Simulated assay, not measured.
Amino acid sequence: MLLRLLVQRAAKLVITLASIVIFLQGSIAIVTHQLIAKLIFNDDPVRRQKHLDSSKKTFILLLVTILTIVAPSKVRITTDNHTIAKNLVVCDPKTGRLLSSLKRKSVMISNHQIYTDWVFLWWLAYTAGLGGNVFIMLKKSLQRIPIMGYGMKNFKFIFMNRKWSRDKINLANRLSDMDHNARGVGELAGKRIAHKTADGLEIWNDKGSTEVDHKQICWPYSLLIFPEGTNLSQNTRNKSEIFASKSNLPIFRNLVLPRVTGLRFALQELKNSCEVVYDATIGYSGVKQHEYGQDIYKIGNIFLKGHSPDVVDIHLRAFDVHDIPIDDESKFTEWLLNIWREKDELLDRYYATGSFDSDGSMKQVVTGTCKIQGYEMARILALPCLTILILAIMIWSKYA
């Protein structure tokens, strides 16, 4: 019994050390790649951006590699047949990898349960060949993370103060940049903004134009937004219920109230390029109703101790952005609250049955492992393995 306990502790220690080494070396390699690309291609914005996109893809490869080694999970995708064509997501029978055909210019909204929600949704974008084209809204404080804070700036992630008066201009500029580049009429196509206002808002001459320059590269994007703004927890649930009671808004059993302003603004800014809005509802095995995923699957426990959900469930449906009443605040609020009511009911069924597949005639279900291609994983592990080999040779030569 004692020997078994020692072996288990040793295994956990090895897992923890492996995760730290792989992440640190991978992060340094990503930032180094970015620095070299920005230096060499300073006068070639297109090639520079291709390298920065490649470094962004490498980050999700890095995270999924660690998950594959220390905390593997199956992912079960359930799609709504009313709004999503069959075979949007398929499983390769030879490799067990999931492949998808998500639209190349999209916004994805989701409920927020644990800190790694965005990892699984980013990985889903990767299955559609969009691993280097994901944009995420993050707390501004994350800019201060050593090494990867700089890396995420180069990913062009959108850092938010959570104060609309301070965030609006920054968000408008970033979204406008995404929209114009997606249509081949942005700075990456050699175009320039007309001028800046005194408070820093960038003004384009073609504001409102749907023009697409097919001679230029049209840069795809997958913008990931969590309208709740934070993880579901006892504290956030209490605050949400208090606000809902005061404002005569619905109280959800499995969610907190979504924030309307930022999402509506984003859709307004991207309406000329955005092809679809995907609505994702996430559930995790091992989490019961009225429990909190963030307490069960803490980010440190997942990546350092290998404590992960056996199955990650993602229910997907789609909306044409032109069918969403983004120009009417009252109607948009009603639309978003209806979406959240339906998500709440979906989660009720999920907690009751353990699956989003409550009606097989209405949905398609595909299950695979959260993993990447073998050669990509080998590329991520090459540097750590080389480091271990060098250390082993040094130790052997000293004590042999």
Score class of each variant (00 low, 15 high):
R48Y: 08
I109D: 02
S19D: 09
H112I: 08
T65Y: 04
I60A: 00
S100I: 08
N42T: 11
N42G: 00
P45I: 11
F41G: 03
L61I: 01
S55F: 06
V21A: 11
I109V: 14
T58Q: 13
P93S: 12
S55I: 09
I15W: 11
V7P: 01
K94V: 09
D80V: 06
K86N: 15
Q49S: 08
S54P: 00
R48C: 14
K103N: 10
R104P: 04
V64Q: 02
K94D: 15
I20Q: 05
T32S: 15
H33V: 07
R9M: 14
S54C: 00
T83C: 08
T95C: 09
H112K: 08
M1I: 11
S54D: 10
H51C: 12
I15Y: 10
L5I: 11
I77E: 00
V64R: 01
T68I: 00
S55P: 05
N42F: 13
M1P: 06
I40Y: 09
L35F: 14
V107L: 07
W118E: 02
I77F: 01
T95S: 15
L13K: 09
C91M: 14
H82K: 15
A10V: 09
T58C: 06
R97S: 09
L6W: 05
I66N: 02
V31Y: 10
T78C: 10
I60H: 00
R47F: 04
T58S: 12
F41V: 07
K86T: 13
K94N: 14
S100W: 01
A18Q: 08
L63N: 06
P45Q: 05
V107S: 06
C91K: 15
V70D: 02
Q34M: 12
V64H: 01
H51Y: 13
K38Y: 07
I77A: 02
N42Q: 12
I77D: 04
L52H: 05
Y115C: 05
V70A: 15
I109S: 01
W118S: 14
I77N: 00
I28G: 10
L2N: 13
L24N: 12
I36D: 06
K12H: 08
T32F: 15
N87M: 02
S54G: 09
N81E: 10
F41D: 06
N87W: 00
H82T: 12
